[in-house]
Computed example of a mutant assay.
Amino acid sequence: MRVFIYSLLFFVLLAPAAQGQMLQQKLRTSSLDSQFVYLNLYSKSQSADFKIIRRANLETVRQNVRDSLSTYRKQIADLSSSNSSSAGNIKGLQDSVSSLTTQLEAEQKKTDSISFLGMDFSKGSYHTMVWAIILALAAAFFGTLVAFRKAKVDTDDSKKTVDELQDELQTLRKKSMEREQHLKRQLLDEQLKRNS
């Protein structure tokens, strides 16, 4: 029985110390919310509304809350500075995008237009104008070719007519000379007949 009393006394005296060490370990390793739950569970109830909390436990939780708050403040400050630098980067990127958009529009306008005779034309109207000029020149060429062909045919006909007229004129001259010679002979023969 003595052993039982000693055992009971040992557990009564050592159990709170072991329980206190276990609570201190849980308070150091768990989250803030869990620390408050453990603190509430392992505190002694004095009445329905009041509990007795050990000062060491309360200091441990208080130090943990302080550490968590300083960590969170530091994270908030880091996030704020990161946010402000990100905002600056975003503003710079937006300015860069608007500048590049302006440059792109200018380059597209340049590539979509062609300078011809000192005037800028869009590619479509330039191509239309070039094809119209090509078609007009082709029509003028074919018109000139047809006129040249007709003039050549007319010239060939005129040459042929002139050659025929030349031949006729030559033939008429010959005939007229022969007739004149014939008439002169007759006249000479008549004169000789008369004189004889």
Rank of each mutant, 00 (worst) to 15 (best):
residue 73 R to N: 06
residue 30 S to W: 01
residue 131 W to V: 15
residue 174 K to R: 12
residue 112 D to R: 13
residue 127 H to K: 08
residue 114 I to V: 14
residue 55 R to D: 04
residue 65 V to T: 14
residue 159 K to M: 13
residue 181 Q to T: 08
residue 49 D to L: 11
residue 138 A to D: 11
residue 89 N to Y: 02
residue 77 A to W: 01
residue 37 V to D: 09
residue 10 F to A: 12
residue 9 L to A: 06
residue 17 A to C: 14
residue 126 Y to C: 06
residue 128 T to V: 10
residue 146 V to M: 10
residue 43 S to A: 03
residue 104 L to K: 13
residue 159 K to A: 13
residue 170 Q to D: 15
residue 166 Q to R: 15
residue 81 S to D: 05
residue 163 D to Y: 10
residue 141 F to P: 00
residue 90 I to G: 01
residue 141 F to H: 10
residue 1 M to R: 03
residue 139 A to S: 10
residue 172 L to Y: 13
residue 13 L to T: 14
residue 147 A to W: 06
residue 98 S to Q: 11
residue 30 S to R: 03
residue 83 N to V: 08
residue 61 V to S: 01
residue 22 M to A: 12
residue 164 E to M: 10
residue 98 S to A: 12
residue 39 L to K: 00
residue 189 D to R: 04
residue 3 V to N: 14
residue 95 D to F: 11
residue 168 E to L: 06
residue 93 L to Q: 09
residue 85 S to Y: 02
residue 29 T to Q: 06
residue 110 K to G: 00
residue 26 K to A: 14
residue 180 E to H: 04
residue 114 I to H: 00
residue 75 Q to D: 13
residue 79 L to Q: 10
residue 46 Q to K: 12
residue 52 I to H: 10
residue 8 L to M: 15
residue 145 L to T: 04
residue 21 Q to N: 09
residue 120 D to T: 06
residue 135 L to I: 07
residue 128 T to Q: 07
residue 172 L to P: 00
residue 84 S to D: 14
residue 187 L to Y: 14
residue 155 T to F: 10
residue 27 L to D: 02
residue 75 Q to A: 02
residue 130 V to P: 05
residue 92 G to T: 15
residue 182 H to R: 08
residue 59 E to A: 05
residue 2 R to Y: 13
residue 127 H to D: 15
residue 107 E to R: 14
residue 98 S to G: 04
residue 32 L to D: 01
residue 36 F to G: 00
residue 126 Y to R: 03
residue 40 N to K: 11
residue 32 L to C: 04
residue 18 A to Y: 12
residue 13 L to R: 04
residue 80 S to N: 08
residue 15 A to P: 07
residue 151 A to H: 06
residue 13 L to Y: 05
residue 155 T to K: 05
residue 25 Q to V: 08
residue 130 V to Q: 03
residue 10 F to R: 07
residue 108 Q to F: 10
residue 67 D to N: 11
residue 162 V to S: 14
residue 102 T to G: 14
residue 79 L to A: 09
residue 128 T to R: 02
residue 189 D to Q: 02
residue 108 Q to Y: 05
residue 58 L to M: 10
residue 77 A to Y: 08
residue 53 I to Y: 06
residue 134 I to A: 11
residue 73 R to G: 07
residue 138 A to M: 00
residue 103 Q to R: 12
residue 87 A to T: 11
residue 45 S to W: 07
residue 117 L to V: 07
residue 17 A to T: 15
residue 70 S to I: 11
